[in-house]
């Protein structure tokens, strides 16, 4: 306020700061978008069976995560070993796992497993996590919808499609 410089009206200085800040925000937003775009593939938490079938950049020699729906009727237990099929409705992947499954692991529900591809179309899981969708409702309502035949497969569908590539 008491500078010797010829004073400009406070109004224009304020406006200049506003423009400066706006320009900085635009540049920053753009930079963030570019960075996120570049890192997109590393931000993929899991691959879908379709990714495994079509993409060539999926690492075959180290731990990866795969995700999709547990195919109905595919779960088979043999002692401590569980076998099931993960599907994204387009492609399927056979999974073998030894260990404790989470409470929400169910046929027709979403699942994310970490492990290794042992052969084309087979996956040996070290850890199995349940993925649930964004739908919440009381059990009676779910039963009523199922009874009325209005149940959409999308309502039990979590994790189908990776969302990585729209």
């Amino acid at each position: 306020m008491t500078t010797a410089r010829p004073r400009r009206p406070a109004f224009t200085r304020r406006r200049r700061r506003l423009y400066l800040l706006g320009a900085a925000a635009v540049v920053l937003g753009l930079a963030a978008m570019l960075i996120l775009n570049a890192f997109e593939d590393n931000l993929v938490f899991f691959y879908s069976p379709t990714d495994l079938a079509t993409r060539t950049d999926v690492p075959r020699d180290r731990l990866i995560r795969i995700g999709g729906l547990v195919e109905k009727g595919s779960v088979a237990r043999q002692g401590a070993e569980v076998r099931f099929t993960v599907t994204d409705t387009a492609n399927r992947l056979a999974v073998v796992y030894r260990g404790i499954l989470p409470d929400l692991f169910r046929e027709g529900q979403g699942v994310v497993a970490q492990g290794r591809l042992t052969a084309p179309g087979t996956f040996e899981a070290r850890e199995v996590l349940a993925k649930h969708d964004e739908t919440y409702m009381p059990r009676e309502v779910a039963d009523a919808i199922k009874r009325s035949g209005q149940w959409k497969e999308s309502e039990g569908k979590a994790g189908a499609g990776t969302g990585a590539t729209p």
Binding site: F46, Y47, S48, K131, T135, Y136, P138, G163, A164
Partner: peptide, 25 residues
């Protein structure tokens, strides 16, 4: 949750198509 494959599920309330939560919840 929309841009990348995440373990976390997508939004339940502020989503296109309205909330996916039953009114009682």
């Amino acid at each position: 949750v929309d841009w990348w494959a995440t373990l976390h599920q997508p939004a339940s309330v502020l989503r296109i198509g309205g909330p996916a939560i039953h009114p009682s919840m």
